[in-house]
Amino acid sequence: MIRRRTQRRLATTVWNTGGCGSWYLDGGRNTNNWPGSMLEYRLSTLRFRHQDYLTRPAAGNRSAVRPVP
């Protein structure tokens, strides 16, 4: 869902509509990682949601990570 929303927003950016050759464009898909402003990104990442991520311990450090419920 996030990927589709991101692609929809990127469709109106200069990379897609400006007629420029960009490394962001890969076979019709825009690989830019954020379609918004820096402020919008900051506001959307204010809270880290642990439940959205799976974690594993670093090599050789089995106590570094809590178990994922």
Rank of each mutant, 00 (worst) to 15 (best):
I2G: 10
I2S: 10
I2Q: 12
I2D: 09
R4M: 07
R5K: 04
R5F: 04
T6A: 15
T6K: 15
R9C: 05
L10G: 00
A11Q: 09
T12A: 15
T12P: 00
V14C: 05
V14S: 10
V14T: 08
V14F: 13
W15Q: 08
W15H: 12
N16G: 00
T17V: 14
T17G: 05
G18C: 07
C20N: 07
C20M: 14
G21R: 14
G21K: 14
G21H: 13
G21V: 15
S22K: 02
S22Q: 01
S22V: 03
W23L: 04
Y24C: 09
L25C: 05
L25M: 15
L25A: 06
L25Q: 04
D26G: 00
D26K: 07
G27D: 02
G28S: 06
R29Q: 06
R29N: 01
R29W: 02
R29H: 04
N30I: 07
N30S: 11
T31Q: 07
N32P: 00
N32H: 10
N32D: 05
N33A: 11
N33M: 07
N33Y: 07
W34I: 04
W34T: 03
G36M: 09
G36S: 12
G36Q: 03
S37C: 09
M38G: 08
M38K: 11
M38I: 10
M38C: 12
L39H: 14
L39W: 13
E40H: 05
Y41R: 09
Y41I: 02
Y41G: 02
R42I: 13
R42F: 12
R42S: 10
R42T: 13
R42G: 10
L43W: 00
L43N: 03
T45W: 02
L46C: 07
L46N: 02
R47Y: 13
R47Q: 13
F48K: 08
F48L: 12
F48H: 11
R49H: 14
H50I: 01
Q51M: 05
Q51P: 00
Y53Q: 02
L54S: 03
T55C: 12
R56A: 15
R56S: 15
R56K: 12
R56G: 11
P57T: 03
A58S: 05
A58Y: 05
A58W: 02
A59R: 08
A59C: 03
G60Q: 03
G60Y: 05
G60D: 02
N61E: 11
R62Q: 04
A64D: 09
A64M: 03
A64F: 00
V65K: 01
V65L: 01
V65H: 01
R66G: 07
P67C: 03
P67V: 10
V68D: 13
V68M: 10
V68I: 10
V68N: 14
P69G: 12
P69Y: 01
